[in-house]
Nucleic acid binder design. Structure first.
Length: 537
RNA sequence: GUCCUUGUAGUUCAAUGGAUAGAACACCAGCCUUCUAAGCUGGUUAUGCAGGUUCGAUUCCUGCCGAGGACACCA
């Protein structure tokens, strides 16, 4: 809807001022209550260029746009026509949609069902998402888990926008990590990890070289700890990509040779370095150690190259903030290989865990970490996912374990799920009374009669724009925020507007259709977030 | 020291340079003979400090103060 309005305004700017204004620069907002359905500040922005005061510019645009109707053919979705346009205070333009249009939105939703909000903006594009990817050296702790719901949900959003997302877990199953795990399993002087699972591995893995023991241990950890953990968290990876396999394939050597030929490598002190300083990094980075082993970074270059070779148009890496130092060198390596603007890195800030009022330092070595499994057992999958998702990746989250359980009962996710359950309950009752109606019966609804109905429909209308925006800015936390807003509008409506009224079947039909649309959208957003939509609570 | 992120109600978090800075929890006062009160309605409380940019700054820039993280031939 927003992009259609942008187009409309762009044309108005063209004919009113003769200025060719980039449609993307026309911001469409949702104004405060009572000030319209949509708003824009373009008049403020182009006032200077148009040689007018902002208010004059706004008035001119208003005259240009008012009375203009975009048919369904023009917009590709719903017709757009404004009932009222106002130029306000500093120079905003506020738009009110023609009231008769609103019921069509409900019909559209109930016709398209869960496909409502789908788009083709990513058609034909394959996106690779690398997330969680915790070392297979033990249970996944909460810090590593944060990227899970984020990546998973982002992938769902991409899918809804026509992209082909691919969820991959990069498994660090060799090298130093494997050595440390190996020593730990053997219980020798260099052991660092401890815990029940180490004891268990000790019984099952044949003794031998630490590296081999560690690699074998990592296999078991991956299969029996990590995969079930992800399953429990509602995340299904399309692939678990083995670093060890990659090294064995010889592809790492190959790509390093390519970099060497391009002049991006040099030898120093027996090691091979990548000239990442040429790409803004503080220092050059080792790719092959003096003992001949590749560093993590060395194989990572090959991994990223490999992903692109597999045909992905875009790579998204979701890393913990502690890896921020790698961003520059990774971008640099891709650039050196001739791949620019292919990789986006999302960093998630650390989660601070509080227990008994004290911070728990997350340390696998000290065994003081909280695992995802513990968290899910305690607060449930839905509440955990919602909690992680509702905060932007940049937020340094605090998680109070003591409040976790109590908090879980107050968790906003229940507020949202409850709205869904309430609607289901209405339909149960409607079915008992044999009340079923035509999708189009909502068209006679006069939204002037009730502000709550109008607000609800407008909230539903925001959904498609929201989804496509997230596919571009990755701000997944807008989804939970949106569900809270939608649930809020619904609960408020529910309180004032009785849906089933046997003495007024016309109104009953209209409201049942409206509420049906709300259920569809709620369920769909929850699905995107990987959260269940219960029929009853 | 350098780099990244961050500082918003008592608490946990929102706010693509915009209009009266929003929620939730907590607290106070109301609302169930009617579709689930896990709900609704109303109330109290906030942009770390100092400058700058402009019609307008929580948002951008500079400095200071505070928080978390990174600065390996570890991953």
């Amino acid at each position: 809807m927003k992009s259609q309005i942008q187009k409309l305004i762009r044309e108005a700017i063209q004919s009113a001022f003769g200025i060719d204004f980039d449609a993307d620069k026309i911001k469409i907002d949702y104004p405060p209550e009572g000030m319209g359905d949509f708003a824009t500040n373009v008049a403020l922005i182009l006032a200077k260029e148009a040689g007018k005061s902002p208010m004059e510019a706004a008035e001119a645009l208003k005259r240009e746009i008012f009375g203009h109707r975009m048919s369904k053919k023009d917009t590709g979705c719903l017709p757009i026509e404004f009932e009222k346009i106002e130029a306000a205070k500093p120079g905003f333009l506020n738009f009110w949609l023609v009231e008769s249009l609103l019921p069509y939105i409900v019909v559209k939703i109930n016709t398209e069902k869960e496909k409502f909000g789908n788009s083709e903006i990513g058609a034909g594009k394959k996106i690779h998402l690398d997330f969680v990817s915790a070392n297979p050296t033990g249970p996944i702790h909460v810090g590593n888990a944060r990227g899970g719901p984020l990546g998973d949900t982002l992938a769902n959003v991409f899918e809804k926008c026509g992209y082909e997302p691919f969820r991959e877990y990069y498994v660090n199953d060799t090298g130093n990590q494997a050595d440390i795990l190996g020593h730990s399993i053997l219980g020798d002087a260099e052991a660092q990890y401890s815990g029940e699972y180490i004891e268990e591995l000790r019984k099952r893995v044949e003794k031998g070289e630490p590296r081999k023991v560690g690699e074998k241990g990592a296999e078991i950890v991956l299969e029996e700890i990590i995969k079930p953990s992800m399953e429990k968290f509602g995340i299904k990876f399309d692939n678990y990509f083995s670093e060890r396999e990659l090294q064995k394939s010889g592809k790492v050597d190959k790509i390093l040779e390519v970099l060497n030929k391009k002049g991006y490598l040099h030898e120093k002190e027996g090691a091979t370095w990548f000239k990442s300083t040429e790409f803004g990094d503080d220092k050059d980075r080792v790719v092959v150690k003096s003992n001949g082993e590749k560093t993590y970074f060395g194989t990572d270059i090959a991994y990223h190259n490999e992903k692109l070779k597999r045909g992905f148009d875009k790579l998204i890496d979701i890393w913990g903030a502690d890896h921020h130092g790698e961003v520059k060198r990774t971008h640099g390596a891709l650039k050196a290989l001739g791949h620019e603007n292919k990789l986006d890195v999302i960093l998630t800030q650390f989660v601070r865990i509080l227990k008994n009022g004290e911070e728990m330092k997350m340390s696998k070595r000290a065994g003081t970490y909280v695992s995802v499994d513990d968290l899910i057992d305690e607060v449930g999958k839905d509440a955990t996912r919602f909690f992680f998702l509702m905060h932007s990746a940049d937020t340094h989250m605090n998680f109070d374990m003591d409040l976790a359980k109590e908090r879980s009962e107050k968790n906003p996710v229940y507020y949202v799920q409850y709205a869904h359950a309430r609607i289901c309950s209405i339909f149960e009752k409607a079915e008992d009374a044999n009340l079923t109606f035509n999708v189009r019966s909502v068209l006679t609804l006069n939204v002037r009669n009730h502000a709550k109905e109008r607000a609800l429909i407008l909230e539903l209308l925001k959904f498609p724009d929201l989804v496509s925006e997230i596919s571009q800015n990755y701000a997944v936390h807008y989804l939970p925020q949106y569900t809270i807003g939608l649930a809020d509008k619904f609960h408020s409506f529910y309180d004032e507007c009785r849906v089933i009224d046997e003495n007024n079947l016309e109104l009953t039909a209209q409201r049942l259709e409206l509420v049906k649309a709300v259920r569809i959208v709620l369920k769909e957003v929850l699905r995107l977030m990987g959260i269940s939509a219960p029929d009853r609570m």
